[in-house]
Design a protein around this nucleic acid. Sequence first.
DNA 1: TGCTTTTTGGTACTTTAGTATGAGTCCCAA
DNA 2: TTGGGACTCATACTAAAGTACCAAAAAGCA
Lengths: 138, 138
Amino acid sequence: MKKTILVFSALIVALLLLFKLSEYSYLSGDISIELVIGGIAVIFFFVGIYINQKTLHREKPIHPRIDHKKIEKLGISKREYEVLELISKGLSNKEIADTLFVSESTIKTHVSNLLVKLDAKRRTHAIQKAKKLQIISI
Amino acid sequence: MKKTILVFSALIVALLLLFKLSEYSYLSGDISIELVIGGIAVIFFFVGIYINQKTLHREKPIHPRIDHKKIEKLGISKREYEVLELISKGLSNKEIADTLFVSESTIKTHVSNLLVKLDAKRRTHAIQKAKKLQIISI
DNA sequence: TGCTTTTTGGTACTTTAGTATGAGTCCCAA
DNA sequence: TTGGGACTCATACTAAAGTACCAAAAAGCA
């Protein structure tokens, strides 16, 4: 955040300096107005690229986004989704049960429902399908 | 590619138009030169962002590659790796056996060895670990 | 050619996973 | 207040998965 403010402050200063420069250049007749404008255009073009690069680098890791609409469409409930996430982390039914403070029977029910909803034969298959549907972010 | 050429052509045209506009505006005295330059700066700033956005989107999918050196380091053999890939696709031992034209016993042996080498408790855990180690590309 | 690793396969078990079915609780909307 | 969905849990099985141990081809290598 602080860096962003600094960059924008620098930009404003640069802009003001360019104003003065262009004014001076034009009045003195050394440089044509077209060159000044072209130069400014090029400079700000690359400044835009630079700024975008910097901000994008922090958004990249967020890239694997989950398709919440698809989860809804498949009729996967909140609890079932939690189970799905833990399955994808490689936990057993017992471990998932302990994590969510419920019995293993409950987890088995959730898993069975998940397999139907994801049209998967096994939990590994469910992982692969969920990943393909961009429902989970492995 | 064609789109890129179109965009750049449009940019050049826009630049030329701006030249003429600025010239006219300045001579007629309707708009101050500062405003023209400022406008151009802002426009090209966002054009830079736009261009960068477009080009970056095509570089993103190239990201997931597999670390062959890590596979070697873990002592995973060629056949074991094939099995690992099929596990990650959600196949059962029997299905893997049929795919590779060997018996299910053989696959069980391979899977057991894989679990030891990947330090995983289950096949789902193995998938997660292999993904984290960038050994497979789910 | 002898030695090692890989790949293959088997038997015998134990442990997880997954299915089917039924049922109780809670909450929310009609 | 009643019906439906979500969550919970249990029993009883069946089906995979995984372990342990052994052993023999096949492939690679020195």
